[in-house]
């Protein structure tokens, strides 16, 4: 199994290893943070020193380390704006106030922010990946339960499942998100952030994330239910009969015989659902979470830079490619018997 994997992907693995080695070399050659900071002008140094004893600090120091390249920006607000930017790459520090280096610096900064580096887990690409992955897992589990309910012979049970699916597919996710985050706590008298410890400074984001996960999961469950149902119903009737003839009950038949065979047929559709959720994740802007799309839109409006969309697209493509690979592996694993 293991050797098969290496054999099958030998070219890709070699390419990945080469890229990794190059990156590590570049990372080692990259100038250190202190070196980057040592280039700041005397005026700026003076401002920073003044800040030490001031209760209202004025200098914003940004340091973005993107493994192979780093970027530092120092700026002040107020009537007289001072701003200095530096990019560090392969042992050299470049001023990044103009030209190519300015764009490079911006790219590093935008990518850094969209990846959510230096922020909590509920931010940027981390938020997008976390929310999407958990939503799809939640959705598939819930979808399986709903699908089994829907094909059940018990009228009330299948009716209930149908109503659920109808409701969640027939209303916009954005409104469901609003209802879960604003309406439910408003009516029931609780706050999402109170689920987490009061001393947790990130509780507000965790609370919003929980609400988002619930809304996304409930919604995805409805879509996954149809995926699971059609997969189950595509399994040959003979399988049910064989299981029954061997004395298996419904639960044993489903969990040991039918669902494992359905998994392979679900994968392509679940993979699609994953990509849909990945894009829908940008709706979390409505409950003040920042995913990749929201951050890139913010940068666009606050800095007027349209270049921000290039790293945004690249980040999305990398995520999609990575998870596409994972789904491919799962599908292969489940179709080994064919």
């Amino acid at each position: 199994m293991k050797t098969g994997f290496f054999k099958q992907y030998s070219k890709q693995l070699i390419a990945a290893a080469v890229i990794l080695v190059i990156c590590i070399v570049l990372a080692i050659l990259k100038p250190a943070k202190d070196e980057l900071m040592s280039h700041t002008s005397p005026e700026m140094q003076k401002m920073i020193e003044a800040d030490e004893s001031s209760s209202r600090k004025r200098v914003t120091v940004t340091y973005n380390d993107l493994f192979i390249i780093n970027y530092a920006s120092l700026s002040t607000s107020g009537a007289k704006v001072m701003s200095e930017k530096y990019v560090g790459f392969v042992g050299k520090v470049y001023p990044a106030d103009e030209g190519v280096m300015k764009v490079t610096g911006q790219m590093v900064n935008y990518t850094y922010r969209m990846l959510g580096c230096g922020e909590n887990l509920m931010h940027g690409a981390k938020l997008t990946i976390l929310l999407t992955t958990l939503t799809v897992i939640f959705g598939v589990v819930l979808g399986t339960i709903l699908a089994l309910a829907k094909i059940s012979k018990k009228k009330w049970l299948s009716g209930l499942a149908s109503a659920y699916i109808f409701f969640f597919r027939g209303t916009p996710l954005l409104i469901q998100l609003f209802v879960v985050y604003f309406t439910v706590p408003g009516v029931c008298g609780f706050a999402w952030r109170d689920i987490f410890s009061a001393s947790d400074a990130e509780a507000v984001y965790k609370g919003a994330f929980t609400a988002a996960l619930i809304a996304f999961g409930l919604n995805s469950g409805a879509y996954c239910a149809e995926i699971v149902r059609s997969a189950i119903q595509s399994i040959d009737k003979g399988q049910f009969e064989a299981a029954k003839a061997l004395g298996m009950n419904y639960f044993q038949t489903m969990t040991r015989i039918i669902i494992p065979q359905s998994v392979r047929r679900m994968i392509p559709n679940v993979s699609n659902e994953f990509i849909m959720v990945l894009k829908d994740a940008s709706l979390v802007f409505a409950i003040s979470l920042m995913d990749i799309t929201t951050i890139s839109k913010n940068i666009m409006t606050s800095e007027g830079s349209y270049l921000v969309f290039i790293p945004a697209l690249v980040i999305y493509l990398v995520i999609t490619a990575f998870f596409g690979f994972i789904f491919d592996k799962i599908e292969k694993k489940f179709s080994v018997y064919e």
């Binding site: 800040d51 209202r56 600090k57 914003t60 400074a201 507000v204 984001y205 802007f285 003040s288």
Partner: peptide, 13 residues
Amino acid sequence: STGTIDIQIVANE
């Protein structure tokens, strides 16, 4: 960002 105070900002549309 200047480190004057430590706050959690929730930015809304």
